[in-house]
Simulated assay, not measured.
Amino acid sequence: MTPRRYFNGISKLRHYLQVVAFTLAVATLQYAFMPDKPYGPPVVYSVLIGTFTWAIIDLGRELVPSAAETGWPQGWQGIALVVVGIAVGYLAGTAVADALCVHYFHFYPPGTSTTGADQRTSILITAIAGLVGTYYFYAIHKSAYLEGKMAEARVHATEARLKLLETQLEPHMLFNTLANLRVLIGTDPARAQHMLDRMIGYLRATLAASRSTRHPLSAEFARLQDYLELMAVRMGARLAYTLELPEALQDVPVPPLLLQPLVENAIRHGLEPQVQGGHITVRASTRAGADGPLLVIEVNDTGAGLPATLPATGPGQSFGLAQVRERLATLHGSQGTLELIAASAGGTSARVTFPLENPANP
């Protein structure tokens, strides 16, 4: 049981309009079975009885602690509220309808009284309609609650899947970096020491940030710069890079460690096979999409270009690309894409595209 939630006037108005539509349907059905009687009185009685019944039950439940999954009182309180609502709704609605039908609409002459059969029919219709209407609103509240829980479960499942992908990606990055460090230890201990210092600083800045499912694009570019500086210790003048991030896109939320596998791939398969190395450019921009603006991030290199066939997924091979594709599919479905494009002047372009999110609503 939970305390009543804040009063939602729009929701109550929507409920009342549904009740009015239901009462008009009841009046129409009643007239269909008794076409010899005028249509006006059933409408007046039905709408007024339905209005009073709705007001007592739907507004009254705001004053009673309700179950979170239905928004309705449980146990005897819920039963009592429905019974009182139907009884008082019938008595009050009938009294007001009697006055209106006689003195305002002049459906009946003064002093006219309903027969016992008409009263019993009216009570029966009110009880059935009240129970049906109550169950309807009970069911839609419970359905909405369950749908919300299902959506919440899907969000948690997506977050858990992304965390799993990230925990797989981080050791992959460390494996590659440690392999590079091992080479330098044997050939250039001084540079190996410098690289180790860079790696410690990089990990200190990166590991905490990678524990969230989103961070600003500026933070992603900052971690990318740290990584490129780390790689520059080993490659020296053979590695040059440019990072282009427009100010308007700095706060756009993106998954952490999304771009690093693409840069790793550009270095390993593009720049390292070349004696002279090469240049890496990481650029963020936007373009229009069918369902709204898209964020486009390109990692361009002037390396050896795409091989005839990409290497199989494995340690140090296409693992990072597979992870990027899977993370994009988990977050954005078919709207998240990764393309590898052979550049006309040599080298390769890796282009990531997915829906642009509002920085205020990540």
Rank of each mutant, 00 (worst) to 15 (best):
T158P: 02
T158E: 14
T158R: 15
E159S: 11
A160F: 10
A160N: 14
A160C: 10
A160P: 09
R161W: 07
R161P: 03
R161I: 08
L162K: 09
L162P: 06
L162W: 04
L162A: 10
K163C: 08
K163S: 10
K163P: 02
L164T: 11
L164F: 11
L165Q: 13
L165Y: 15
L165D: 14
E166Q: 13
T167G: 06
T167Q: 13
T167H: 15
T167K: 07
L169Q: 13
P171L: 11
M173F: 15
L174P: 05
L174C: 05
N176T: 12
N176C: 07
T177A: 10
T177Q: 08
L178K: 06
L178N: 03
L178E: 03
A179N: 13
A179T: 07
A179V: 01
A179H: 05
N180A: 07
V183F: 04
V183H: 10
V183D: 09
L184P: 05
L184I: 06
I185G: 05
I185Q: 05
I185S: 08
G186I: 00
T187E: 13
T187I: 11
D188N: 08
P189R: 00
P189L: 02
A190R: 03
R191Y: 03
R191H: 10
R191A: 05
R191D: 01
R191P: 03
R191K: 14
Q193M: 14
Q193H: 15
H194E: 15
H194G: 08
M195E: 02
M195W: 04
M195K: 11
M195L: 11
L196Q: 11
R198T: 08
G201D: 09
Y202I: 02
Y202G: 06
Y202V: 04
R204W: 05
A205V: 00
A205M: 01
A205G: 00
T206L: 11
T206I: 07
T206V: 05
L207N: 02
